[in-house]
Measured scan of single mutants.
Amino acid sequence: MPVRRGHVAPQNTFLDTIIRKFEGQSRKFIIANARVENCAVIYCNDGFCELCGYSRAEVMQRPCTCDFLHGPRTQRRAAAQIAQALLGAEERKVEIAFYRKDGSCFLCLVDVVPVKNEDGAVIMFILNFEVVMEKDMVGSPAHDTNHRGPPTSWLAPGRAKTFRLKLPALLALTARESSVRSGGAGGAGAPGAVVVDVDLTPAAPSSESLALDEVTAMDNHVAGLGPAEERRALVGPGSPPRSAPGQLPSPRAHSLNPDASGSSCSLARTRSRESCASVRRASSADDIEAMRAGVLPPPPRHASTGAMHPLRSGLLNSTSDSDLVRYRTISKIPQITLNFVDLKGDPFLASPTSDREIIAPKIKERTHNVTEKVTQVLSLGADVLPEYKLQAPRIHRWTILHYSPFKAVWDWLILLLVIYTAVFTPYSAAFLLKETEEGPPATECGYACQPLAVVDLIVDIMFIVDILINFRTTYVNANEEVVSHPGRIAVHYFKGWFLIDMVAAIPFDLLI
């Protein structure tokens, strides 16, 4: 008679799926529990143990900040960024110097990925580790590398530091407007667009060049630039800015003055950032001319202004700041037409079709709590990747769950009947059967004279019903998954307890 339990259901295979997918890609990662103190490590794979030199037993239950890997060259700011990422709910990448158990130093890129439950609360953290440099290539500990984003994938490793954006290309926007319009339909740009040429040739750093990471940081200074100062900065030398009595002219307006920039070969870094931020506020060169004239017309309804409409929906549905990093990277690809469009465009503009998908598509409701890094690593669709929660398995109709209350009560009843059979069957065979043979035949009273025979008949009927119930009862397979398919249940029961239950259900007393 089957006594099969499996009270692990309803099970959740999400954690096993993450481990299996990460292991298949030869990654070095740990999984931490966000619900406990210090976000203790609950799993670390073999790749991480080989990377740091510690065994799994030495890593388990330690804080996922990996303070046991810190050393003299470990930056405090990087460690603080990892700790801050564990307090938030967004994906974050941090470069930090770690030390192995043998004392060797290596520069590592740590990717902190939160995993949320159905309520939107962070319950786990996945920390992925990628070695960037070994100890002989690690720089000085005073050099802070965590304020910069990861290198873009479309640049060669040897040319990542030679990417320079020439400031004269930004200063000569109005001069290039006529050349853009003359391109017409034969050019790649839309009317009114501004073409910015980027020099990728390796050259020595000069005062006129600005690194790509500095251009990325310009967006942080746009908020500090007032509207009046932006307007004066875009007017140009024809209309000098008016300053109040006793007030000095704005240095932001002076930063885009061609006369002032041409007199000296070098520009201050602050002026460069502010000038680029001011130019980015204009949607095209037409807006710059309109600002000089004193009238700013409404933005025209053409394809170039609607190019950012799908980007707005993608940004609203993005799951991490990696989408913004990807957008900034692609927006700086050289030799393309940049349409400086305000994100607050007309909502009635139709979304044009684009061959290049900048932001990841909208994630469906079932995966809105899973970050983009987890979705990318697992390579699963929205119909396959579940949320991290207890999910009731989908069972067929008329199927009994093996952990249901009805099955528990039924098993206790069958257990009592088995005990009765084990006690009274030998007793009936030894004593009652002998008395029946010696006594007179009682054929007239039937079952009324033999109450134990009636009980034995009921017990046999219950055993037959138990066999039928076992054909529709779920079970737990070797992978700790609840199986509810009727065919698989029948095959599993035939290979197991079916023969024993059938022999126990045969009414031998009635056959004798």
Rank of each mutant, 00 (worst) to 15 (best):
S320Y: 11
L87N: 13
R176M: 06
I30L: 11
N45V: 01
S275P: 14
P72Q: 05
D16N: 14
A282I: 11
P114L: 01
S320C: 13
P361V: 04
E357Q: 07
R20P: 01
K116R: 13
L51Y: 01
L86V: 08
D259I: 06
V215F: 06
L173E: 14
V138W: 05
R176V: 03
A307K: 06
T305L: 13
A360Y: 14
I363Q: 14
N339F: 01
P298Q: 08
P2S: 06
T216V: 05
A268E: 07
I336N: 07
Q81W: 05
A57F: 08
K332S: 13
R301P: 10
V325R: 12
C265N: 13
R328Y: 04
R281H: 11
G224V: 13
L378I: 10
L200V: 12
D136Q: 11
G53W: 01
P202Q: 06
A172I: 01
V41T: 08
D197H: 01
V325D: 14
T65Y: 08
V122S: 11
R92V: 11
G189A: 06
L69H: 01
D46S: 06
K135I: 06
D111S: 09
D144C: 09
T375Y: 08
A97Y: 15
Q11V: 13
A350E: 07
C44N: 01
L200Q: 15
R35F: 15
F48I: 01
K332H: 10
S182M: 07
T17E: 08
E118N: 07
R62S: 12
D213E: 06
S261K: 04
V8I: 07
R20M: 07
A290R: 04
I19F: 03
R100K: 15
A382Y: 04
H147S: 15
R77L: 13
E91T: 07
F22C: 07
F48S: 01
W154Y: 07
A97N: 06
M133E: 13
S206G: 12
E95M: 13
T162V: 07
A260I: 07
H368S: 12
G184K: 06
D67M: 09
S261T: 06
V3F: 13
A204F: 15
V325S: 12
K93D: 09
E274Q: 12
K364A: 12
L311H: 07
L167F: 15
A34T: 07
A185L: 08
A193S: 07
I358M: 09
T305Y: 05
S320V: 14
F98Y: 14
T270L: 05
I96T: 04
I82G: 01
R76K: 15
P240H: 15
P245A: 12
K362A: 09
A211K: 15
V112N: 01
H221R: 12
A253V: 14
S283A: 08
V110S: 01
N45Y: 01
C39A: 14
E208T: 10
H143P: 14
M308C: 11
V215T: 09
L324I: 14
S207L: 06
L267Y: 14
A80L: 12
N45Q: 01
Y327D: 07
R281G: 13
S250Y: 05
N317H: 09
R77N: 10
D323P: 09
F14K: 08
S104L: 08
A244G: 09
T305R: 12
P168F: 03
E372F: 03
N339Q: 06
E58K: 01
P251M: 08
D119T: 09
A175N: 15
H254V: 05
P202M: 01
R301H: 08
T371G: 07
P151T: 08
Q247S: 15
A121Y: 10
D102Q: 05
N339I: 01
E208C: 01
D346A: 07
T74I: 01
E134V: 06
I358S: 09
G314I: 05
F68P: 01
P150L: 08
P251F: 03
V59Y: 01
E23A: 05
Q75G: 12
T305Q: 11
P249Y: 06
T371R: 07
A121W: 09
S318L: 12
S178P: 12
L127P: 01
S179Q: 06
S250L: 01
V198L: 06
Q25W: 13
L385R: 14
P205N: 14
L267W: 11
K135R: 08
L171N: 15
G120E: 15
I333M: 15
L86C: 14
T17K: 12
L212R: 07
P352H: 02
N220F: 05
C44M: 01
R62M: 08
G314C: 10
G88V: 12
A32K: 01
T201W: 04
E90H: 14
